[in-house]
């Protein structure tokens, strides 16, 4: 009996497309893109199906954006694209062409923490820290839309970002704390 090796191949959510098969090898289908990441303009020559998260981590080398699932569930890879939170594992790098990306590394200015970063540290809105960059970016996006959210609005607003450590209570506290600071 002949059987292929275990673990179901990584497929996209519809279950039919095999994801991320060596985008660098097919030379003929490459595209040039240009985008700003944390205020610096970058050019890249990539395959059309190359994901934004891989561009950020593997090409640009900004490793604060994390990968937890690659199926657009956990939110660890959340960045801001033109000011809106997106899951960078669910965005093709070409879709960000001409855009402005902010990652966790772009939040603090001159060594001064962003109020949301300060709030997460102050209120213990993190434990292992793996979900934290994505959570902070999503929370920044949430406050842009809803500057003074209720607890309920925070819980629903961050529903797309999974944290296994905290039970979310201190994350909610942190977002409230940051909202107060940023309004004041």
């Amino acid at each position: 009996m002949r059987l292929a090796g275990g673990v179901l191949p990584k497929v996209c959510m519809c279950g039919t497309h095999i994801l991320s098969l060596h985008p660098q090898r097919k030379e003929e289908q490459r595209v040039k893109i240009s985008l700003s990441i944390n205020g610096t303009q970058h050019e890249a020559d990539i395959e059309p199906r190359f994901l934004l998260v891989h561009l950020i981590r593997d090409v640009i080398g900004l490793t604060g954006t994390h990968i937890g699932c690659e199926t657009s569930i956990c939110g660890a890879c959340t960045v801001l694209l033109d000011g809106k939170p997106v899951k960078s594992c669910a965005v093709l790098a070409v879709q960000a062409n001409g855009g402005q990306v902010t990652t966790i590394e772009g939040l603090a200015k001159d060594g001064q923490l962003h109020p949301m970063q300060e709030a997460f540290w102050e209120c213990h809105g993190l434990q292992c820290g793996y979900c934290t960059p994505g959570m902070i970016m999503a929370a920044c996006g949430l406050l842009k839309e809803t500057p003074n959210p209720s607890e309920e609005e925070i819980r629903h607003g961050l529903e797309g970002n999974i944290c296994r450590c905290t039970g979310y209570q201190h994350i909610v506290d942190a977002v409230k704390y940051a909202a107060d600071k940023m309004v004041a």
């Binding site: 954006t65 966790i104 590394e105 603090a108 970063q117 213990h124 820290g129 902070i136």
Partner: peptide, 17 residues
Amino acid sequence: HRKEGRDKVTGQARYVD
């Protein structure tokens, strides 16, 4: 405050990947 908190909120903490 969490000892390694600053690294974790700024994306400087280095996980194995």
